Computed example of a mutant assay.
Amino acid sequence: MSAREVFLADPAATEGLAAALAASQPARAVVFLEGDLGAGKSSLARAWLRALGVRGAIKSPTYTLVERYPLPAGEAAHLDLYRLAGAAELDFLGLDDLAAEAVLWLVEWPDRGQGGLPAPDLRVRLAVEGAGRRARLEAASPAGQAWLARAPI
């Protein structure tokens, strides 16, 4: 599968990446957001949801584990699985309902839910680099590969 890298010098660059991915995403997409604490996963997710038109508070799902946002074509789900001990705990989150309704999944700490999540279309690996961040985007499905090819980044 293909991959692309981009340096995010500041919050505006993160917002630009999120807007580019939101504008080019397929009708249904699963995105795994990976990286250490403080790498910018939540910031990217928040900017992505804003780019899709979500207004009002965009809450971090650190404690709730799942936050859902209405979109014109369905629903976006932002998951933060950091506090899970393993995929067995996903049963309590109602992901079966979410699978039917969500057109976009933004999943932080997906390794904590391994085996209980839908397969990703795109993996975004974030890392602190100097004063900014480095984002490595990796296609993880044929839909993800087409997405990455057309994304204006």
Rank of each mutant, 00 (worst) to 15 (best):
S2Q: 11
R4F: 11
E5T: 15
F7E: 13
L8F: 06
A9W: 06
P11C: 05
A12V: 08
T14C: 09
E15Y: 08
E15M: 11
G16E: 08
G16R: 05
L17F: 04
A18D: 01
A18H: 00
A19T: 10
A23F: 08
P26C: 09
P26K: 10
A27S: 13
A27R: 14
A29D: 03
V30H: 02
V30I: 15
E34Y: 03
D36H: 15
L37W: 14
L37P: 03
G38I: 14
G40V: 06
G40E: 01
S43D: 13
S43Q: 15
L44M: 12
L44K: 02
A45P: 01
A47V: 09
A47Q: 04
W48K: 01
L49S: 00
L49N: 00
A51M: 11
A51W: 03
V54Q: 03
R55T: 15
I58K: 01
T62Y: 10
T62A: 15
L65R: 06
R68L: 11
P70H: 13
P70C: 13
L71P: 01
L71S: 06
E75P: 03
A76D: 05
A76W: 02
A76P: 04
H78K: 09
L79V: 06
D80R: 03
L81H: 02
Y82H: 12
Y82V: 09
Y82P: 01
R83F: 12
L84P: 03
A85W: 11
A88W: 14
E89D: 15
L90W: 02
L90F: 08
L90E: 00
D91Q: 13
D91I: 11
F92M: 12
L95K: 11
L95G: 07
L95W: 08
D96N: 14
D97A: 14
D97R: 12
D97H: 13
A99G: 13
V103I: 14
V103P: 01
W105D: 00
W105Q: 00
V107Q: 02
V107F: 04
E108T: 09
W109R: 03
P110S: 13
D111T: 14
Q114G: 12
G115S: 11
G116H: 02
G116V: 01
L117A: 05
L117H: 02
P118E: 10
A119D: 14
A119Q: 12
L122A: 04
L122V: 10
V124C: 06
A127D: 07
A127S: 10
E129A: 09
G132F: 01
R133K: 06
R134A: 07
A135M: 06
A135W: 00
A135F: 03
R136F: 02
E138Q: 07
A139N: 02
A139M: 04
A140G: 04
S141C: 07
P142S: 04
A143Q: 07
G144V: 02
Q145M: 08
A149R: 09
A149F: 04
A151P: 00
P152I: 03
P152G: 09
